[in-house]
């Protein structure tokens, strides 16, 4: 089985101000996505670099080091049209992802015209109507609506429909449900699952919500301050976490079941007042300030990827 997407030691450096200090928003990330429909979650909290990673894959930012291969070719060597045909995005804020001064349908039409390559206007609309009905819309209803006449959930479905128009191999969804209500969130997530199974599209699903990640994803990578600290099959990583950070994350996740309340309350969390900026420029493991198991080596040397039970973990605890 080949690889669809491969990230090799991808690093992105940002700096504050003109001569400000530099930090690695994404640091030495290597991942690979196999060439069969699957959902790959990149999970992490705010400031973990997950959105930057998504934008690197989408060619919004260019990596400073390392490379990203799609079907074995560097994404910067692929022509625009081929790239856009194969990889499509879905963004976090449905209201910000459509221009409020234009009708959302315009972007669907443009996509078909420019990337799929249909010229005739009626054919374009027929083509769009098919995809729209797949996500539960009637083209005659949505065609004349302006952005503000849609609800957030509807706009997100429009965004999904637009992404599907090119029949992409991969959709990069950056926190696609975080702005939606919980009762609607699951509909979008279910739609992803359906698209994966019926249309054979792979997803990179970026989220901070481990519950939905567990629910839909096949693989998961947990990020912390720019580096992937644990990755593997999602059931494995989320039920038998290895890295101390993943463990803390899962322990602090509230569970929608009052029976678990006692257990959850018993596990106390320590409050650490460490500074994010300091963590970004650390030489060693970024989690060292918060880690209860930290020892000297953690502070100075970044741990390598260690494979245990098919999961990759970056922690000196597992180094033999």
């Amino acid at each position: 089985m080949g690889e669809m997407l491969r990230l090799e030691n991808v690093t992105k450096i940002f700096r504050y101000g003109f001569l400000g200090f530099k930090f690695r928003a994404v640091d030495d990330v290597s991942l690979s996505l196999e060439d069969k429909p699957s959902i790959f979650t990149i999970a992490g909290e705010s400031g973990s670099g997950k959105t930057t990673l998504a934008r690197l894959i989408l060619r919004v930012f260019r990596p400073d080091f390392g490379r990203i291969l799609f079907n074995g070719r560097n994404i910067y060597e692929i022509g625009d049209r081929t790239f856009y045909r194969n990889i499509q995005p879905i963004f976090q804020d449905p209201y910000a992802s459509f221009n409020p001064m234009q009708k959302p349908i315009r972007y669907l039409r443009e996509t078909v015209k420019n990337i799929v390559g249909i010229e005739d206007e009626r054919e374009i609309d027929e083509y769009i109507a098919k995809t729209l009905s797949y996500v539960g819309f009637d083209i005659s209803v949505v065609a004349d609506k302006h952005q503000h006449e849609f609800s957030g959930g509807e706009l997100q479905r429009m965004a999904i429909a637009r992404a599907l128009l090119t029949k992409p191999k991969l959709i990069v969804a950056d926190e696609p449900v975080s702005m939606l209500d919980a009762s609607f969130r699951i509909n979008i997530v279910n739609l992803f699952k359906k698209i994966k199974e019926e249309m054979g599209v792979s997803f990179i699903y970026i989220t901070h919500d481990l519950a939905t990640a567990y629910y839909i994803s096949d693989y998961i990578a947990i990020m912390y301050r720019g580096s992937v600290i644990e990755s593997g099959r999602s059931e494995k990583v989320l039920s038998e976490p290895l890295h101390p950070y993943t463990k803390t994350l899962i322990e602090s996740l509230p569970i929608p079941d009052p029976k678990q309340k006692k257990l959850w309350m018993q596990k106390k969390m320590a409050f650490t007042a460490s500074i994010e900026e300091a963590e970004f420029i650390l030489k060693g493991c970024r989690y060292v300030y918060r880690c209860p198991y930290a020892f000297d080596k953690c502070k100075t040397v970044m741990p390598p990827y260690i494979t245990i039970n098919e999961s990759n973990v970056r922690c000196w605890l597992y180094y033999k």
Binding site: A211, L238, D257
Partner: peptide, 22 residues
Amino acid sequence: RALINSLPRLGDKGIRQGLAGQ
């Protein structure tokens, strides 16, 4: 009921359903 049923949780891959409409 719909609210509770739409919540995914760790360790449970059972199908969840959300609410339609707004």
